[in-house]
């Protein structure tokens, strides 16, 4: 496949070489005009893909948000009806709450554990193999994650509940109780993303010069003091990025939930993406599902923007 691509390109080059005027020694205006034509040829697939599968669907998504659309018949413009429905939809607000709860739990816990892990890896000088093992969960799908943990947390036969029963006398209904469903899903998400985050943060730590820590040690700073006043401030840009990536990822959580709880029990873990999917493909209410996606998108923009601003504000405080 690759060789054929190269072959055709070689032909193109040969073909153009015969027709084009002799190449100028320096990059004059003529060569730049030639570049423009080639450049557009090279970016054409990307621009086409952007237009057809990104820009157009986005505009269409905004349009569909204001329509009644049941997939089989053409959309009907209904103005702000969907927005009104959204404001009155208790289930939407509930699922928004569930999503927020999930995001806060998994980001706080996930970034916290990743940060500690990265610092420990860094300060102990552990080799690449250990970091490699850490990213194993990143390699497997959310589906596999959900399956193996559903099995391990099974109330009767799961190994985790065997241990818990042995200690406390009764199993924990991780997926099937109102109180545990969301924390359990958040824990699964943390398990899956922790290693990846830790490796990202670790890379950030490696950019901090070791001499800074030596200076800190000479000044008599403890490990914890150095962590607080050296590591954290210097790591801020990477941490902001990790938090933003995790918020965006966690807000769109779907596969783990769909495979393990399906939003249950009784909507206790109905995250927004799950509700949108259910509206669109369970009830074929595409217009309203699009409205909810738009709302989710706008909220993500707002949250990301706020995070960036907060990060920048505090950056200027310390510097």
């Amino acid at each position: 496949m690759v060789t054929t691509v190269q072959d055709t390109s070689a032909q193109v080059v040969r073909g153009s070489a015969t027709t084009a005027p002799p190449p100028p020694r320096r990059r004059g205006p003529a060569s730049r005009r030639n570049d423009t034509w080639v450049a557009w040829l090279l970016v054409a697939p990307a621009v086409l893909g952007f237009g057809v599968f990104f820009a157009y669907p986005m505009l269409r998504g905004v349009y569909l948000s204001f329509t009644e659309f049941h997939i089989l018949t053409p959309p009907v413009w209904t103005g702000l009806d969907n927005v009104r429905q959204l404001l009155d939809d208790g289930r939407f607000w509930h699922s928004l709450g569930v999503t927020a709860y999930f995001v806060v739990l998994s980001v706080v816990l996930g970034v916290g554990v990743s940060l500690i892990t990265a610092v420990v890896l860094h300060r102990l000088g552990v080799n690449t193999t250990v970091r490699g093992l850490m990213i194993l969960p990143f390699l497997i799908s959310g589906v596999v994650t959900a399956l193996v943990w559903t099995w391990m947390l099974d109330p009767q036969l799961g190994i985790v509940n065997q241990l818990i029963t042995w200690i406390t006398g009764e199993p924990v209904m991780f997926f099937s109780s109102d109180a545990w469903a969301v924390p359990t899903l958040a824990a699964l998400n943390v398990w899956k993303t922790m290693g990846y985050n830790a490796v990202l943060i670790f890379a950030g730590l490696q950019t901090i010069p070791a001499t800074i820590y030596e200076a800190g040690r000479i000044d008599g700073a403890s490990e914890f003091q150095m962590f607080r006043s050296l590591t954290l401030p210097l790591l801020r840009p990477i941490l902001v990025m990790v938090v933003v990536l995790n918020v965006i990822g966690a807000t769109q959580i779907f596969d783990i939930v769909q495979v393990s709880t399906k939003g249950g029990p009784a909507d206790a873990s109905l995250v927004l993406q799950m509700y949108i999917y259910d509206k669109a493909f369970g009830q074929f209410d595409f217009g309203y599902a699009a409205t909810m996606s738009l709302a989710l998108f706008l909220m993500l923009v707002a949250v990301t923007f706020t995070q960036m601003r907060m990060a920048r504000a505090s950056e200027s405080d310390t510097n």
């Binding site: 599968f53 990104f54 986005m58 269409r60 998504g61 569909l64 807000t251 769109q252 998108f297």
Partner: peptide, 26 residues
Amino acid sequence: RDVVFGVLLTALMVPSVFTLLPNFVL
């Protein structure tokens, strides 16, 4: 060049959730 690149980069900021449903319809 820079204009086209900047426009394409906006896609980094839009989560996939928003384009999935319309893409399905497409």
